[in-house]
Amino acid sequence: MFTLRHRAVPWLLVSPPLILLTIIVLIPEIVALVLSFTNFALGRSWRFVGFENYGRILTDPAFWSAFRVNVVFVIGAVALEMAAGLFLACLLARRFALQGLWVTLLLAPMAMSPAVTAVIWSYLLSFNIGPINYLMGLAGLERQEWLSSLSLTLWVVIFVEFWAALPYVVLMLYPARTILPQSLYEAASIDGASGWTKFRYITWPLMMPAFTVALIFRIMITIRAFGLVWILTGGGPHRATEIISIYLYKIGFRYWQFGAAAAIAWLVLLLTAAIAAHQVWRMYRRMFVEHRPW
């Protein structure tokens, strides 16, 4: 059975992941598409309702509120983490004593479950006993209801998401920075280039590809954020931090309206598809076309 000559063998070997993904991801996707045109709810008879679910969602103010919150959330968190990640990648390239220790500590939040992150920040930001309000007091500022303020909480949630995600950006950008040839920087120094000039004309253009990949990945991952925000605020106060995934979760698993939830799911899918398609095509080309293995 294991002879190279048999042309079916490679296909046999690659089939387990393909089958797993088909059963667990692809088929449910298609079922979700069908569900989105029905009024399916658990334990009830159902029928096709055409585009009714989509119509209802697109005219629901709560959906557009979630959409707005989601856009602010993604732009805010991704902008912060990309800027800080690039800064840290360049900073770490300057080499420090105990470099390994610092890198390990900087990456530590990666090992945290969204549940643990929520525990940590619920405590730090707690109104009565939180150390952050204590520091505010020391600085002569007013204590804040960080997690239940209509105006502040979205920004707090964006910061916590930034905290949890920054290590991933560092992990992607730091190696990209370390492989830049040192000779370029030495040559620039001899020519009397300032730190900013070196960054502007060497680091930035050369890191652009890695930066773009990281940026697209982070946007896609942040669009699907759920657990952290859900545990931290539940989408509140009112709908101030209700991102689309929380809106979907409530309709699907609080009100058990699977048809409507599936319609939201497919709207999200279409929103992310454009970004994703581009990224998938690039990765495929990089792995299989640019250095042709055949």
Binding site: L21, I24, V31
Partner: peptide, 28 residues
């Protein structure tokens, strides 16, 4: 055993992973 047609199936591997996981929780 890379061939062009075998390589094309990685497009499927990559594409499927890009879907937001929340979507499949509803029908699953």
């Amino acid at each position: 055993f890379a061939t062009r047609r075998l390589g094309l199936t990685t497009l499927f591997l990559l594409a499927v992973r890009m879907f937001p996981p929340l979507i499949i929780t509803v029908p699953l």
